[in-house]
Design a protein around this nucleic acid. Structure first.
Length: 185
DNA sequence: AGGATGATATCC
DNA sequence: GATATCATCCTC
């Protein structure tokens, strides 16, 4: 099976399903001519405005309008003043959902730590300039690398969302069981 | 356990 | 305009 770029219809589906199926896919960023590539090993689903852990629960604001936009675009934000986090927008336009990419296994031109959403973005060269970027572009996209997805998938509560009440407990974090590049057990 | 560090939302 | 908060990470 040849590598192929994930198309709009991949993203335009149930958010938890997309989060699970992104495991094993490749994230590619052509960063100043350097093609950085990592294999996704950990994700989290933020399923919509009713999800109190999701930024979209604030409604449509200048920041969250990307989450409410069409699927297959990058939602990038700055957290704690020093780290960026990258999401992919899911479901039909207007839904307000996305999948956070939490950890990568290095494949090409990733010199630094990729275990955790902030470190992932730093290693990939991803920052606010890529907020709203189309993932069907030539310089930032996700790809089915054609591997057989035989790995076991773990499903656990999300990290860093204790403020979200019952939504903090929902098992919307997915990772490849046993992979050494997962950010936390 | 606490600090770095800046965008964002939500007040006045 | 001021302030509280933050989907993190590092060091102690």
């Amino acid at each position: 099976m040849k590598p192929r770029k994930l198309q709009r219809n991949f993203y335009a589906r149930d958010t938890a399903t997309v989060a699970r199926e992104l495991l094993g896919k490749h994230l590619v960023h052509v960063d100043g001519g350097i093609v950085r590539r990592g294999r996704i090993v950990e994700t989290e689903a933020y399923v919509g405005p009713h999800d109190l852990a999701a930024h979209s629960s604030k409604g449509i604001t200048p920041r969250t309008k990307i989450m409410y936009g069409p699927p297959g675009f990058a939602y990038v934000y700055l957290i704690y003043g020093m780290y960026h986090c990258m999401n992919v927008v899911t479901e039909p336009e207007g839904h307000g959902s996305a999948v956070l990419l939490r950890a990568l296994e290095p494949v090409a031109h990733l010199e630094n730590n990729t275990k955790g959403p902030g470190l992932l973005c730093r290693a990939m060269g991803i920052d606010l300039r890529l907020n709203g970027h189309d993932l069907l572009s030539e310089d930032l996209y996700l790809e089915d690398a054609g591997e057989d997805a035989t790995f076991a998938i773990a499903q656990r509560p999300r990290i860093g969302v204790d403020y979200a009440g019952e939504w903090a407990e929902k098992p919307l974090r997915f990772y490849i069981e046993g992979n050494r590049f997962v950010s936390r057990k």
